[in-house]
Design a protein around this nucleic acid. Structure first.
Lengths: 186, 186, 186, 186
DNA sequence: CATGAATGAGGCTTCATTCAT
DNA sequence: CATGAATGAAGCCTCATTCAT
């Protein structure tokens, strides 16, 4: 890990800690200790802990979207892609012991003034939403309006499956959400 | 508020703060200050901050379930009751400025050893799940298995609607979830 | 020193350090170390470092005014009392190695928002001013207006003598001020 | 400002910040940021923050003395020049919102080992003292000794007027000092 | 001669909890 | 059953300075 630059080491370490232990449970001291960086070096690259979280979320967004894209690209049809999203959830969340969604997790118990983080969550969810809309819009069977309405419903199933599987530490919510999406797609 | 006993004052104050500001954002000092209680008096009634949170969640569960029950009791049919659940979400979440679910919010960024709180979340969601299952089981149209599968899907829509409306600070996810549930109920 | 209560120990220690080393040069850690107090104990009694400084200045005011009063009480006449003020300065400042005035010293290099401290300085100087005015007003030779004008001139000589003796680490400015006041009093 | 050399830009920026915000309140980072200079470039020209302060004080001395000389040169007589010094104070201190004397301000709350700065203050005050002495010595009415004694008294009135007007944020101390000097000059 | 990254030490403040009364 | 004082650990952040390039 020492091969990476300081900034990269901070982001990697913080990302790991923020996601798996939580934003409030992760202290600056722990980040710099595990990253092997001096405190002031860290503040050379990031103005505040919040800014590190923003970098974490930005990086996570790219990776997460990329993995989803790759995962569902095995399917040809729109409906197939949508349904495969839930297989992605099973795959991903199983690996992380159902730790849930990084954006959901960070915005639920946040200091009042941490708006930059909140904006990241809004943006991320909007991009996922648009991504799902786009998949369904390419299906000629649906009008644009139908595609958007259906897409919103799928998005909610995804969100619900993530949070409920996190609470229950079990994949059944994801399977139920998959079944629901199959029904909704007819 | 001075009419209430010490324990009740603590729970009321903490419940308000935990829900609206977050568990990590709420300090012991703030609770005792707003409750008008001495610190050691508080520790007489509660072994730890976590225990206060448990009392908060236990109380919230009773109130929340009661309100839901009252709200949907205007409907006669099972399907009507289920769909009216989403009207309840609109009503409730609109009032609290889309502050989300107390149990979702508290388990996402919690010290590793706070298992009593985690158990509360699991229990609450299980009771909501059973409640929905029971409503659908009373519908002769469905087999027990169908009722349970459908109920799980409804639960996930509820969870997804809550968390997404919290992120977006908007009721559209609840409306979308309502539409999805209408489709799923045929 | 252990016989004193925590709050008194903090004030005593901080007063010594603030006066002799300066407000900015004195850290919270040094105060609690020398006072033998835990950091959080200190913050039980004082909301902030600034508040400790306020307590320091309030206490210092009482002591300083008292010493001045005692010192000049050997004189009967108004003029005698005024002139003896400068003997007080020589006595006091000689003892503290010409460390200057606690209020002058603290307001010259203060964080922008430390207004409580600034107010202490203003109040202290006003009380000294009124004290000198009162002494001269009891002199029948002067009208009230004359007493006030003359008092202001004396006050300025005091202030100038303090700061200049601090810079020069020498008592000559105090002696010069004393001579000036003799001339002004006719 | 980009026309100036690096060293000049640093001194100009630091001078402004040191005087108006205070030495301790001004950080190295703020100086280089506002001067548009790299950190190590700054340390190329100045060994330490203290050295920058020395350069600031040296430059300020020349400017300050020059302005005073110009201001009082409208007067022909020694006494007239001395009294006009206080008009200078009113003019200057009114413009800087009664921010006081750069040398007084910097020596009151200084790290123990910052002797180079202390020496600057001593030197500056000595030069002002000599300047005033010289003005009064050119007055044939006084013996050399009288001129020096009177000059010291004037200097103290100046110092007291500066610091007291800084605390009170008002020009009345300067006016009182002017009146005192008029009396002392007979 | 100029640069941005890196640093150790320390800044002030708050945490949940326990203790003596 | 109630209280305020006391605590160790940790919180996030900034300081003036040095180093490798």
């Amino acid at each position: 890990m020492k091969r990476l630059g300081v900034k990269e080491r901070i982001i990697e370490t913080a990302s790991d800690l923020f996601y798996h232990n939580g934003y409030n449970q992760t202290g600056i001291n722990q980040i710099i200790a595990e990253a092997g960086v001096a405190k002031a070096s860290m503040y050379q690259h990031f103005r505040s802990k919040e800014d590190i979280a923003v970098a974490y979320l930005v990086g996570r967004h790219t990776i997460w979207m990329g993995k989803l894209f790759d995962f569902i690209s095995t399917e040809r049809t729109s409906k197939g892609k949508i349904i495969r999203c839930f297989d992605y959830l099973i795959d991903w969340l199983g690996e992380v012991d159902f730790r849930g969604c990084g954006w959901q997790n960070i915005i639920t118990d946040l200091p009042i003034d941490h708006d930059k983080i909140r904006i990241q969550a809004i943006n991320h969810k909007n991009e996922v939403r648009n991504y799902i809309h786009d998949i369904l819009k390419s299906e000629t069977e649906y009008t644009i309006e139908q595609a958007e309405q259906l897409g919103d419903q799928i998005l909610i199933l995804i969100e619900g499956a993530i949070i409920l599987s996190q609470i229950q530490k079990n994949k059944w919510p994801i399977l139920a959400a998959k079944n629901a999406s199959i029904s909704l797609l007819k």
